[in-house]
Design a protein around this nucleic acid. Structure first.
Lengths: 126, 126
DNA sequence: GGTGCCTTCTTACCAAGGGTAAGCGGACGG
DNA sequence: CCGTCCGCTTACCCTTGGTAAGAAGGCACC
């Protein structure tokens, strides 16, 4: 899109496409939740992280964490002990993304009932 | 998760689950981009909207718009003319979500190069 | 009056992505 | 010697998304 940012400043289309891709990568349910949990709880190991995220599968947790590590959002520390212990901790970049998503969480909490009402209206109409 | 919000206030687990679901619904690439475009451009019709969102298919555009309408994020106005004309416009709720996502867009723009660098480091390592 | 076009969906079909569940590796407790 | 611990990984399947074609239906043109 030949978009403008919220201040009305025109954006280079090539940058625009890259940002869209990045948003596609990062605007993901699991990524957002991992971000939230790690921001609130600090360093955590794999299993505990999974326990704090109801509904996630091991596969998706692994995949999400790898992608986030690749993007530099978190650091994965392998402790060479038996049984294995792997800790995950947000980088400054990850923390800053967590802050950015914070507004979305607050929005979701604030508007939950309003959205449920809207859905109900939509579902029970001719 | 027995999470706390960013201010450290404990959250009811049931509310937590609902918020997670809502986030899963709303933290979607296409939803975010539609929100952005409509926030910047105001009312738009189907085809034009599609032209402003590179890479989206008609099917996903329809589906995304329906879901957003269901959630009360936008209003769909059908003008009974031939050929058909359908306009989409954000509600106040949709605009407020756009504001909330605004921080994420700015984050993405600001940290684009840093992320690309991180990816490159990750991909070219033993 | 047929032919074709316009726009907004919808649908049939296929590929890709996510869920489930089982296995692996390797020390240690019983 | 067998089970258990944890962090993955993999094989299989089902759901989801992309592609492309069509439907609806009045209008313009020949």
């Amino acid at each position: 899109m030949t978009a403008t940012d919220p201040q009305g400043v025109p954006i280079d289309p090539r940058v625009e496409a890259l940002v869209s891709d990045l948003i596609g990568r990062v605007a993901d349910k699991w990524t957002m939740i991992v971000l939230e949990v790690l921001a609130a709880q600090g360093e955590m190991r794999f299993t505990v992280l999974g326990q704090h995220i109801p509904g996630i599968s091991q596969k998706m947790l692994t995949r999400t964490l790898r992608a986030m590590e690749r993007d530099g959002l978190l650091i994965r520390t392998i402790h060479p002990v038996i049984p294995p212990r792997v800790d995950y901790r947000l980088t400054d970049l990850g923390l800053s993304l967590g802050d950015a998503f914070c507004g979305v969480w607050r929005w979701a909490e604030r508007n939950l009932t309003q959205i449920e009402a809207a859905r109900h209206r939509f579902d029970s109409r001719p």
